[in-house]
Each structure stands twice: as C-alpha cells, then as structure tokens.
Amino acid sequence: MELVIKNLHAKIDNKEILKGVDLTIHTGEMHAIMGPNGTGKSTLSAVIMGNPKYIVTEGSITLDGEDLLSMSVDERSRKGIFLAMQYPNEITGITNSDFIKAAMQARLGENEHVSLFKFIKEMDKAVKDLKMNPDLPHRYINEGFSGGEKKRNEILQMKMLKPHFAILDEIDSGLDVDALKIVGENINGMQSDNFASLIITHYQRLLDYIDVSNVHIMVNGKIVKSGGKELITKVDNEGYDWIKVELGIVDESTNKKEAIILGSCAVNKGAK
C-alpha cells in the first residue's frame, strides 16, 4: 500500500502551519520525521488522521490512489491509518477493553463479531509485551494513567488494531529509559510488508530500537531534507542549525517578534 502526500498546506486559527509537505510512504518502510519544536510535525500527523481543528487549504493525501482527505476520521482508521497521540485523552466510564473491542468490531461487517476468547488472549499478550499492569483492560480509558502508561496504551491499541500506516506522534516523550526500550522494541516488532510507520520525534533515543529506513527533517512546515539513518546521527551530534544554514532558512519564530501596541488592548471603536 502507498500513502502519498502532495504539496500539503494546512492551517489552524488562520495560521498556516504546513506549507507544502511532500511525502510518500510504502508499507514495509519505517519512516522517521525529525525537526525542531513548532515546525509542524504534530500538525502533519493530526492532518493525516483528520483532526477537525486543522483545515487543509491546498494539496492532497491519497491512500492507494483514494482521496484520504474526503474521508471521515473513523473511515480513515478503518482504512488502516493509525495515530498514536502525543496527549491521549482520558475518557471516564469506558474500560480499555470495551473501547478496543468496539474499535475492532467497527472493522467487521454487521454479522461478524469479535471472538471474545481470541480478543482476551490477544489483549493479554499485548499487555504482557508492553509490560503493563494486568488490570489495564478493566481500567477506564487513560484515566489516572501516568504519562508513560498513556503512551504504552497507544502502542497497545496499535498492536490490537494492526493498522497499515501508524503515525506515532512523539511517542517517546514522557517515557523513562526502560519504557522507551519496551515501546521501541514493540514498534520494531510491527515491521512487515503490510505495515509502515511514521515516527515523529525530537531525539535519537527511540530510534536506537527501531530499524528506520527513511529519515526526514522538517523545518518551517516543509520537509527540507530526506535520507537514511545517517541523518539521525548528524542531527543528534549537530542539532538542526546546519540544515538551516545549508538551505538558507530563516527561522520564522525568531523573525516575527511583533511589539505589543497598547492600543490593541483597549480601543473604544464605538466612540469614533
């Protein structure tokens, strides 16, 4: 399968974040996107999943030639897109196991049902693989979870739902060294001809455990450089400044300091 992103522009609250992203991912590949804070990595992942907060203004995303952008969020998921979120939601009153079972059921036809026995077996195995607390299936979705537990729960859902394209948005943040290893190994274990991942991260650490095939660097809403694993080492050693210099990029966040004008706070427009 093939996920193709072409000239993607997206905005939130009238601020353009993505400014022409081009990226092609095939199943069987493991991609990583690196880049400084605030360059649009998380926005890209949210837009692929279809978060309604972001508005696509230009460009396209297709899945095996089908227009992904015209699909609802749940449809995208059922087509095989998965997003492990940076800040997973807490939802009270619904257990993790009911939630995951409902998600699996949503992939089946009306007369098909998730086999309970198989489900419990798979869930148990996934919980063990991720070294999570065995009471996890009976707890409410992410409620009272530590940051690390929430992240592991995202990976658990990925393992259960078996997507074709898994986007992992800073799955490594908030994980300690041991958890990082467990999560990394579990992601790596997903590798197959039917699976691709897009791993968004600041750091090299997570990528130590994952056999990455493609690495992209994103700056100011665009992918500015793509390559292989060697890019990871370079970023880790030298940061991102060299790319900006190499490509002549002026960092927008430092360039756009606007003064606060007193008049902008309290203008009595009605009196004029």
Binding site: D74, F99, A103, Q157, L161
Partner: peptide
C-alpha cells in the same frame, strides 16, 4: 476525535462517551 481515530463511528463514539 480520539474514539473516532480508532475507527468508531461518530454517533457510536458519542454514545460511548455518554454511557461512560
């Protein structure tokens, strides 16, 4: 968005939240 991103339809997701 979270529930739907796992493939659950909008109305079912809303029901789940209310049942929760």
């Amino acid at each position: 968005f979270y529930l739907m991103s796992r493939g659950i339809k909008a109305n079912d997701a809303l029901q789940m939240i209310v049942m929760g």
